[in-house]
Write a protein that binds this DNA or RNA. Structure first.
Lengths: 344, 344
DNA sequence: TTGTACGCGTTATCAA
DNA sequence: TTGATAACGCGTACAA
């Protein structure tokens, strides 16, 4: 009791101090395994992720989650879930190790079905939205991204700003474009539909950007991602133009390749992957610690715990990074106060 | 005993079968925590990594390690270790959770000091070499990378192949260049020092590549990494040349950006990060399972276990990827049979 | 305020 | 071949 600082009313304070001092001098460390066996709390969270290997995004999310976990005294068990059956196997394994909760990360913000087997456990979804709206999730503020990026271009003197979007109906496409338009309107600038295009990730895309280049002569570009940004660089190079001198670009991504090699003007907006991981883990752990342990749980079949509280979605604002240094960043937990239509 | 298939000489076989069948029908799963408490084996490995957030490499290593671990029935505890004190704190935490061994990943192949606190535990170093040569490590076969990449260029018809290397003395620089030269010699081609340059990652680099472009007129390039590859693309674009038509490029990296947007010729050599993780974890786990548990270990102070066997280094060959599909890949455990000087 | 005893879910030992 | 029992390290209820 003294070691756990639960001495009040049981052990006199001086003795408790002496006990702690002695324990410390002997190098005593409690054994978390034995403790968990007794308490059925492991101070452990399970992280389910896809595409750890192929994108840098997952790494950032993981890193953020791990930092939060370690700050709060938790360990993170990692499982990657590329493939279908894989997911259930991973969840099973994590349950056997008695993780206190689950972090479930997708790589691109999108609607997702949360596995049934997670529904009655503390779970937070990262970079994805629960179709059924039953599980709390942490996603980027896509509109804020479009808004900030476009404002940044305006502030740097751009007058004709093109938007190079995605042709596939991605979840982020609409709010980013809205943010772009909102920033233009905010500065009394006209919205010119000819300056907005959506392109796929292939040959015709380069042609489309080429046409835009020649017919509209924009002096700045806000690009949906690094593939789109690349088209702009390529078009500029072929015309003897130099990005940063003859035009400005802001591309969304955290592949740093493009930003590294050019002068200050090209700017990338980093999606807040680290932050999503960080705040997601904090959220999860607070859920865990608030959640009263259900004593009626069957140790073998692991009977369900009571359903989760209604989730309040968390959106995290983007970080705007120019040549490696953060220009602006705000992390805040927002409710639905904006009266925004649900993101689609 | 039946459940653990240790029935021989104790329980008659049919009974053992019946026991297992019944257990299965009841949905029984052993509790790993209780088991560990008794056996002091957790079937758990700790993964120490740096730069999870900032590079895609760490993700690939982690993913490989996790796959191997899960194949062999192990869970992976993740800790990232950016910063100095961080490392020791992470190791301490992992030790408290009684991980059976440690995977210690750096992000660029280089000489490293292994923390003292790991020396007497099962440990494998990933993408790094132990300064003192006491801990086994898994590293890419850098010479093979240079050799294969250059052969690929030769096979595609190139005659004057430039090598755009690194000016900083990176561990990989020398063997990659050796592989490049070895491939040239293997085809009876002359080695032209004017075709080999080392550049840093900055402005003068682009000028150096420009000079090489104009003075030597190479028809192909083997580039140390994606930054160097970028210089080649930029130089080509400014001269109205097209990589893939007027010249060929092979760059080392697994940023896919460059390879995605062009036609088949540009090829990237992926460093075998996934494989290093995979084989490193297998190696570690075999060390763990061969290692007789020292019964004299003090449960509190965690007295040292006997020193590791002399490590035999493992090198893993690269994977050669062209436009997303693997051209060649060999993973093999090599000893020192090549009589090669130790990598510096 | 202190001491004793039990249980968490395993594995291992020892007699029978 | 079987059954009873101790022990791993911890938390806690209960009696003193």
């Amino acid at each position: 009791m003294s070691l756990n600082h639960r001495e009040s009313g049981h052990v006199n304070k001086e003795l408790a101090e002496r006990i702690r001092a002695t324990a410390k001098s002997m190098g005593y460390r409690p054994n978390p395994l034995a403790r968990s066996l007794r308490t059925s709390r492991t101070s452990t969270i399970g992280f389910l992720s896809e595409q750890i290997a192929t994108t840098p995004y997952a790494g950032a999310i993981i890193s953020g989650a791990q930092d939060a976990a370690s700050e709060l005294g938790y360990m993170m068990l990692l499982v990657n879930t590329d493939g279908e059956t894989n997911v259930e196997r991973g969840i099973e394994a994590l349950k056997r190790y008695e993780v206190d909760g689950f972090l479930c990360a997708k790589v691109y913000n999108r609607l997702t079905r949360v596995p049934e087997s997670l529904l009655r456990r503390p779970t937070v979804l990262l970079d994805a939205i629960d179709e059924a709206g039953r599980v709390p999730c942490v996603i980027p503020d896509e509109r804020g991204i479009g808004y900030d990026a476009t404002n940044h271009l305006i502030a740097s003197g751009a007058r004709r700003i093109a938007y190079i979007g995605s042709s596939k109906g991605m979840l982020a496409e609409r709010p980013r474009r809205e943010g772009y338009e909102q920033a233009l309107r905010g500065h009394g600038m006209e919205i010119d539909p000819d300056l907005e295009i959506g392109v796929a990730n292939n040959g015709p895309a380069l042609e489309a950007v080429s046409r835009l280049f020649d017919e509209q002569r924009p002096d700045a570009f806000f690009c949906f991602n690094d593939a789109r940004t690349w088209y702009v660089y390529e078009c500029a190079a072929r015309r003897g133009l130099r990005v940063g001198r003859d035009s400005s670009v802001v591309g969304v991504d955290n592949h740093r390749v493009l930003a590294e090699t050019f002068d200050p003007k090209p700017t990338t907006v980093e999606l807040p992957h680290y932050e999503m991981g960080y705040w997601g883990a904090r959220r999860l752990i607070s859920m865990i610690e608030e959640h009263p342990l259900d004593e009626t749980i069957d140790p073998h079949t692991r009977a369900p715990i009571p359903p989760l509280d209604a989730p309040s979605p968390v959106r995290i604002h983007c970080t705007l990074v120019e040549n490696g240094s953060v220009i602006g960043m705000h992390c805040e937990e927002k409710g639905e106060e904006e009266g925004d239509a649900p993101i689609r």
